[in-house]
């Protein structure tokens, strides 16, 4: 059975295999440095639909089907779907899976949702409640801007600390089959709020949560940063990465050598004008489900700590002047089981 370790971590006993993944992205992401790794790059950000919200649900639906197809498990063998997105009431995922006819848990962890879904999926399989779980997370640039910021055609300047919401969906099929790579342990994040109120600087709002989760992972398992080939956060962007590195240094951990961020990897800030980097549920979900998944599967990376990060504000809480709490969920993903 799963073993609880320290305050925030769990070590899995069974094999929790990431059987397959799929990533669908919008046109801008396709033009980015990771463009060639994604399964599907849409030519049209509306995906042939009438609204951005409908487009997001269509992307979710098609990409999840693709992940299941690639797993060769068969839709009827999927016991649960765990998914979430940024839209109000999780409508992107709800409508995306409404025709699937499979038990569904809708999640909200803002941009950390993919991490949340992987952790919970792992727990479901470990507990014996499920054999195969489909997990995923999505976001859509235009739909997110419309909900959280200003109309797209309003002529404003975006501050240099802002990030660009990734359009797309990342999905994975978790299974109890013995198939590399594996989720071997998780560290569940806590809400951390160091009083950032600037919704244009989400990296700064999330960095303390990322540092907290990573630090707890090190302490719970009594390891040092070099235990991992790479520590990959979700969407901290340039500003958040720098802050996380500094915060962890103050705790005595130097992660500067093996640390990267999906938000920094997905866009070229100069030619794509994305400022601090990419963000949104789809940022960590698509980058992991394509680029990093393949690297771990092939053994180029043997052990990674994958830490999707989320800023848990709403447009109402921001207007009421509330500060922005962050969260980060870490999953240890390994090429082989029982490395230690």
């Amino acid at each position: 059975m799963a073993k609880r370790i320290g305050k925030q971590s769990v070590k899995f006993d069974k094999s929790i295999s990431i059987k397959s993944t799929a990533a669908t992205v919008g046109p801008k992401e396709g033009e980015g440095p990771l463009g060639k790794y994604f399964d599907v790059v849409l030519e049209d950000i509306l995906a042939g639909e009438k609204s951005w919200e409908k487009a997001e649900s269509k992307i979710v639906s098609n990409n999840m089907k693709l992940a299941v197809e690639k797993s060769k498990i068969g839709m009827d063998k999927i016991d649960y779907i765990l998914a979430g997105d940024l839209l109000n009431q999780g409508s992107g995922s709800n409508y995306g899976v409404r025709d699937f006819n499979i038990p569904f848990f809708g999640l909200y962890g803002a941009c950390s949702t993919f991490g949340e879904s992987m952790c919970l999926g792992g727990i479901l399989i470990e507990s014996g409640a499920a054999e195969n779980v489909l997990v995923g997370a999505s976001s859509h640039f235009c739909a997110a801007e419309k909900q959280f910021r200003f109309p797209l055609d309003l002529g404003t300047q975006r501050p240099l600390t802002t990030t660009w919401t990734v359009t797309g969906d990342g999905a994975a099929v978790l299974s109890n089959e013995d198939n590399s790579p594996y989720i071997t342990a998780i560290t569940t994040g806590k809400m951390v709020d160091l009083g950032i109120t600037d919704a244009n600087n989400m990296g700064a709002a999330m960095a303390p949560a990322a540092a907290q989760a990573i630090c707890s992972n090190f302490k719970d398992f009594d390891i040092t940063p070099d235990y991992y080939d790479l520590i990959i956060t979700g969407d901290l962007g340039k500003v958040g990465m720098e802050l996380t590195t500094k915060l962890l240094k103050e705790e005595g951990y130097d992660i500067s050598k093996n640390f990267t961020d999906c938000g920094v990897e997905i866009f070229d800030p100069v030619s794509q004008d994305t400022h601090a980097g990419g963000s949104g549920c789809a940022c960590s979900a698509t980058v992991f489900s394509s680029y990093f998944y393949e690297k771990v599967k092939r053994g180029e990376l043997k052990r990674i700590l994958f830490v999707p990060t989320g800023a848990l504000m709403s447009s109402t809480s921001v207007q009421q002047g509330e500060s922005i709490p962050g969260i980060a969920h870490a999953a240890v993903i390994e090429n082989k089981r029982g490395n230690n």
Binding site: F150, L154, G155, T156, Q157, P159, D198, N200
Partner: peptide
């Protein structure tokens, strides 16, 4: 005002 006070355009 925009650069120094982070006021939104509204």
């Amino acid at each position: 005002l925009i650069d120094k006070t982070k006021l939104t355009s509204a």
